[in-house]
Measured scan of single mutants.
Amino acid sequence: NITNLCPFDEVFNATRFASVYAWNRKRISNCVADYSVLYNFAPFFAFKCYGVSPTKLNDLCFTNVYADSFVIRGNEVSQIAPGQTGNIADYNYKLPDDFTGCVIAWNSNKLDSKVGGNYNYLYRLFRKSNLKPFERDISTEIYQAGNKPCNGVAGFNCYFPLRSYGFRPTYGVGHQPYRVVVLSFELLHAPATVCGPKKST
């Protein structure tokens, strides 16, 4: 009989979020998941679920829940969905086509923008091939755009693969920082350890 609540607040209220190319993952297990707390949290810009209804989450049990978190621009949030393409979905964070879970995003301009620009948040701009679902690539190898080998030196046709967002408070909404948490639900042939409040007695 599990009684402790799942530590969703640790994920959602973290002081610093990860850059999207180096997205953070927390495994959540052996706890009671009260999703209504999240669902009623006012400032969400997006709360979209795939393969599961957000209002039914509290009735369900899962083997594991993974909480992935990172920061992207407002106009990139739409790429955090199954079957998407674009710089983020291709080179930074890719969801599987059969994704079961929820994508939760909110504007973090007050936290993550600075006058003069916040350059701490990076994304991958160049990559030889697209990421596989949930693949994480933190390499900083110089990207070779031409035929000539770069030998690890940036220059003509040789690019550092990461780019900084440089968030400023005055940017338009599409270019403002958004914090994103992706909850993915794993249902294995194993005992369920993460259940909603109704199922955990």
Rank of each mutant, 00 (worst) to 15 (best):
N1Y: 09
N1Q: 12
I2F: 14
I2G: 14
T3W: 09
T3D: 11
T3K: 11
N4H: 12
N4T: 15
L5I: 13
L5W: 12
C6P: 05
C6H: 07
P7M: 08
P7C: 10
D9F: 13
D9H: 13
E10W: 06
E10N: 08
E10V: 09
V11I: 14
F12V: 08
T15A: 11
R16W: 10
R16Y: 12
V20I: 07
V20T: 04
Y21T: 06
W23C: 01
W23R: 01
R25T: 05
R27T: 13
S29Y: 10
S29D: 10
C31K: 07
C31A: 07
V32N: 09
A33Y: 15
D34Q: 07
S36C: 05
V37E: 12
Y39I: 11
Y39F: 15
N40R: 15
F41C: 08
F41N: 12
A42M: 12
P43A: 09
F44D: 13
F45K: 15
F45V: 14
A46C: 10
F47Y: 09
K48G: 04
Y50M: 03
V52D: 04
S53P: 09
S53R: 10
P54A: 15
N58F: 07
D59G: 11
D59V: 09
L60T: 10
C61W: 07
C61Q: 12
C61F: 07
T63V: 11
N64E: 12
V65G: 08
Y66P: 01
Y66I: 12
I72V: 15
R73A: 15
E76C: 05
E76A: 08
E76N: 02
V77I: 12
V77P: 01
S78C: 07
S78K: 13
Q79D: 04
I80W: 01
A81T: 06
P82Y: 01
P82Q: 03
P82H: 02
G86A: 03
D90N: 13
D90L: 09
D90F: 09
Y91F: 14
Y91H: 09
N92T: 01
N92C: 03
N92L: 01
Y93W: 01
K94A: 08
D97K: 14
D98S: 11
F99D: 00
G101N: 00
V103Y: 01
A105L: 05
W106P: 00
N107R: 06
N107E: 05
N109Y: 05
N109R: 09
L111D: 13
L111Y: 12
D112M: 03
S113M: 01
S113A: 14
N118G: 04
Y121G: 01
L122H: 06
Y123L: 15
Y123R: 04
Y123D: 04
R124Y: 01
L125S: 14
R127L: 02
K128W: 07
K128I: 08
S129L: 08
K132V: 10
F134P: 02
E135V: 07
R136V: 08
R136E: 04
S139H: 09
T140E: 15
I142T: 08
Y143L: 06
Q144Y: 04
A145W: 01
N147S: 06
C150F: 01
C150E: 00
N151Y: 10
N151H: 13
N151L: 12
N151E: 13
A154L: 07
F156E: 04
F156P: 11
N157K: 02
C158E: 00
C158R: 03
Y159I: 01
Y159S: 00
Y159P: 01
R163Q: 15
S164L: 04
Y165H: 04
F167C: 00
T170Y: 04
T170F: 04
Y171H: 01
Y171F: 07
Y171C: 00
V173R: 11
Q176M: 06
Y178C: 11
V180Y: 01
V181S: 02
V182G: 01
V182W: 01
L183T: 01
S184V: 11
S184N: 11
F185K: 04
F185C: 05
L187P: 11
H189K: 14
H189L: 10
A190M: 12
A190H: 13
P191Y: 10
A192P: 14
T193G: 13
V194R: 12
C195P: 12
G196F: 11
G196V: 11
P197T: 15
K198V: 14
K199S: 14
K199N: 11
S200F: 14
